[in-house]
Write a protein that binds this DNA or RNA. Structure first.
Lengths: 198, 198
DNA sequence: ATAAAGTGTGTGAATATTCACTAACCATAA
DNA sequence: TTATGGTTAGTGAATATTCACACACTTTAT
């Protein structure tokens, strides 16, 4: 599944449209206009609109997998890994806010089965990486084992998603990374190995 | 802003459609079909499609506010309040899964300013109730004050939303309440007042 | 060297379908 | 009689997609 140069340009344009005007704005007309050519030219590069969206989502998934792997590869401490992974995500979305839709397509469960699966894939990729880090951290007693790794990942992912959603709802006004690091610090406090006081 | 009987039926039907086929499926044609009458009949009850969605969201917001207030009113312990509030939510959505849109209405985001505000209102209502409970719990030393109440609420709300999303993505197969209570127990473990071991 | 064939990428016009919405009319019950 | 809630039959606008065609390159055959 190779993505050609022009195809990449198109899915990037599609991403921009998504950021500017949401999924409803992503029409063949708008997309062609942004590319500076006629609607029909789109079909020289993709079978149809669904394929455009699918390609975008799959590209995003692959890219995220690659980025997450690389960003933590030369770090030992699970705590540091967690921070690095999140920062990597923040930086990516700061640079490409349009791809946020992929994360928040909760509501647009509509389109097609294939699209749905592509979205799940992205979530799965993220979960896979977090799980690995958390498990390692638990082994090294850096994170509590009062909860299973799965359960910890759920809470971390949920907080992360809400953080991103609020960023989007705010119109990308606040500093994603700054606030995100605060969130990360908070999460780290909570998942530290600890004894109940009472 | 009174909602008539027939209007309620219509917004319920709208909720069902949203659950089944997402925002793209919510067309006047589909809605009328689900109601068993002609498209034009919709306009006997609502000014237009936007008013239908708005009425639905506002109804949900008001109802949630009322339910959350009542469900915790005769409970003292913040911990118990938290559990009660969540169980109330779980029961409501178990009974009315189509209204899950209230939680995942991110997709409706584009539509109109009014809709956007209604969505924010729902999130705000939920946050308001949680915040109260958490603050009380911190005062009574039932919850940690290593994080601010706001920050704790963020993490709780994020986890909750992800839980609901997974329930929906699973096709409502697992037991929302059972798994939800497990999540709640996990969250309570994490937000207990605690000392770091190290 | 050059003609022929093929490839990639564009155009403009036309397609059928779907969308939210409206107008004119009709039945029933207060 | 009149408001209420339904009907049928439309509207224009927008949608994704297809069509025949054109132009510039590159490859291949003579």
């Amino acid at each position: 599944m190779e993505i050609k140069e022009r195809q990449l340009e198109i899915i990037e344009a599609a991403g921009e449209i998504l950021t500017e005007s949401g999924i409803a704005g992503l029409t063949t007309k708008n997309l062609a206009a942004k590319m500076g050519f006629a609607e029909s030219a789109l079909y020289r590069h993709f079978k149809g609109k669904e394929e455009i969206i699918l390609t975008m989502l799959r590209y995003l998934s692959t890219d995220m997998d690659y980025r997450l792997t690389n960003s933590v590869s030369d770090i030992d401490s699970p705590k540091e890994k967690l921070i690095a992974a999140f920062n990597n995500q923040f930086e990516f979305f700061k640079k490409n806010p349009h791809f946020l839709v992929a994360i928040f397509s909760d509501g647009l469960l509509e389109e097609s089965k294939a699209i749905n699966e592509a979205i799940m894939q992205i979530m799965g990729t993220k979960r896979k990486h977090l799980l690995q880090i958390i498990q390692q951290g638990q082994k090294q007693k850096q994170f509590t084992d009062a909860l299973s790794a799965d359960e910890l990942v759920h809470i971390i992912m949920g907080s992360f998603r809400l953080h991103m959603l609020q960023w989007r709802l705010s119109g990308f006004t606040f500093d994603l990374k700054l606030k995100g690091n605060k969130l990360m610090a908070n999460l780290l406090k909570l998942i530290q190995p600890h004894k109940s006081i009472v």
